[in-house]
């Protein structure tokens, strides 16, 4: 039971091969096997969105996926969204607009927005709030988060 299985995937562009227990979630795999601790774990049942990463370009909750299910896929985490030097324009917009306080929810929100703003590059405030409905912030910083997303959208026009 639970014998380790070999998996090969790309994480932030790098090829990764590991042997993992089937019950290991993708979130724990990223944090504990690859030391990519930017992906945060909040609720572990798919409600808070803190563990959101991109799987083949689509935002997914990495606590609701097994690492073995990502075999052959391309995963992007917040580390992969961050340039070698400085911040990405979206990250800078968060810094400029008080879009984070404790920062726990921020990686998940950045991953969610990076997919969503590709689908809808010019969203209204209401659409941004709906797009972020699956990401909880407990510092009650939604206003700053929405401001940051809107500022980024304006600057990208």
């Amino acid at each position: 039971m639970n014998e380790p299985l070999g998996i090969s995937l790309r994480v932030n562009g790098d090829a990764v091969t590991r042997s993992v227990e089937p019950r290991l979630t993708l979130a724990d795999f990223l944090r504990h096997e690859l030391s990519l601790t930017g992906t945060h774990i909040g609720c572990e049942h798919g409600v808070c969105g803190a563990c959101t990463v991109l799987l083949d370009g689509r935002s997914v909750r990495s606590c609701l996926m097994l690492a073995v299910q990502a075999d052959g896929c391309a995963v992007t985490t917040v580390e992969g969204l961050t340039p070698a030097e400085g911040l990405s324009p979206l990250q800078q917009a968060f810094a400029d607009n008080h879009g984070l306080q404790c920062g726990y929810c921020t990686p998940g929100i950045l991953c969610t927005l990076s997919e969503y703003l590709d689908i809808n590059p010019n969203p209204s405030e209401g659409e941004i709030r709906e797009a972020l409905s699956g990401n909880l912030c407990r510092c009650t910083g939604y206003q700053g988060i929405v401001d940051a997303a809107l500022a980024y959208v304006r600057s990208a026009q």
Binding site: G49, L55, R58, M65
Partner: peptide, 9 residues
């Protein structure tokens, strides 16, 4: 139904 992240899976 849920959110973009849950509909993706």
């Amino acid at each position: 139904i849920g959110h973009l992240q849950t509909r993706n899976r």
